[in-house]
Amino acid sequence: MPISVAFVDDHPILLAGLVSLYSGKDDLLVSAQGENAIDALRIAEENRPDVLVLDLNIPGDILATIEKIVRNCYPTKIIAFTETANIEMAIRVLHLGVCGYVLKGSTARDLHEAIRIVHGGNTFITPGFATKIILSMKASELHRRMRVEKRLSVREEQIVRYLMMGKTNREIAQMLDISEKTVKHYMTVLMQKLDARNRLEVVLAAQKLDNSAELALAEARFN
């Protein structure tokens, strides 16, 4: 039985081209087409295509639309077909339940393959871009684990912030209205928690903890 597929794109020529191209495939049946988020939701609710190929830049609240379709329009599966090579957006829609992410620079064969793979219950992401998404997701998970393992209390974060300003223990004690002995106690805890040997290393470790996700994400973008 052919896979029923619908296309939603606000570029009339591209939409007509997609419909014409994939209507000629023996294993596909183009069941509907639209040009905005309202059309996408209507098609999903009324036609229930096996696969809905959806441009992320169409008019309307695309994220809310995706969420509604995933929640209410089983068994329709969504493929994002877009020019947006944006890692954060890709991860966001994949988390919402999109099963495919195909860049518009891909070949017609790639999109056809994506439709078959997604219909089969698997995920398809444009090769190359998929690597960047995986690296970014790994970086986010690493950062989350680091934050859990080395989570600072509110007081510890306050002390670190003053350390970054170059304040002494006495000055920190005055600003926080605590004793200097208490500040020294927190310094000991911070050095143990952050594997630091002195005040400078505490500051550097805290900065590294805050910047790790951003640096890893930048690396993913350029790999």
Rank of each mutant, 00 (worst) to 15 (best):
F222D: 04
I87E: 03
I115Q: 04
H185D: 10
L54P: 05
T84M: 11
E171K: 14
F222I: 11
L204A: 14
L190Q: 05
A205Q: 11
L135T: 03
S179G: 15
E219V: 12
E35T: 15
V70E: 12
C99H: 07
L28A: 04
I58D: 08
L200N: 15
T76Q: 02
I159H: 08
T168F: 06
V70C: 10
G166C: 09
L54T: 05
E67K: 15
E67D: 15
D210P: 00
M137N: 07
L94D: 01
I178H: 12
I117N: 01
A85Y: 00
L200V: 13
P49S: 07
E88P: 01
R147H: 09
V203C: 11
S31H: 01
L111D: 01
E67I: 04
L56C: 06
I117P: 00
G24V: 01
N198A: 07
S136W: 02
L28I: 09
G17L: 10
A130Q: 12
D9Y: 05
L56E: 05
R170K: 15
G34M: 06
L194S: 05
R109S: 08
A196M: 04
A6S: 13
V98R: 04
L111F: 02
R199N: 11
D50V: 06
S20M: 12
L56I: 10
L204H: 13
A173S: 13
R92T: 13
A218L: 14
F7E: 02
L142Q: 14
L28Q: 06
R151V: 04
K25W: 05
V202K: 03
P127A: 02
E180P: 05
R92K: 15
M146Q: 13
R221Q: 14
V30G: 06
P49N: 07
A114I: 02
H95G: 02
R145E: 14
N86H: 07
A130C: 07
G105H: 01
V93D: 02
D177Q: 13
V154N: 04
A108N: 10
N36R: 06
V183R: 05
M137G: 00
A213S: 09
R48E: 08
L29K: 13
F222S: 13
Q174C: 06
A205H: 03
V8I: 13
M187P: 04
M1A: 11
H95D: 14
Q33W: 06
V154W: 03
D110R: 08
G17E: 07
M191I: 00
G121T: 05
A114P: 07
A114D: 03
T126N: 08
D55V: 03
T123H: 12
L135H: 11
K104N: 03
L142S: 12
V148G: 00
L190S: 06
G100D: 04
D26S: 15
S140T: 01
R170G: 05
V148M: 12
A37V: 08
V98E: 10
C73G: 05
D177P: 00
I3D: 03
N198C: 05
E113G: 00
V70Q: 09
H11G: 02
Q174F: 09
Y162I: 00
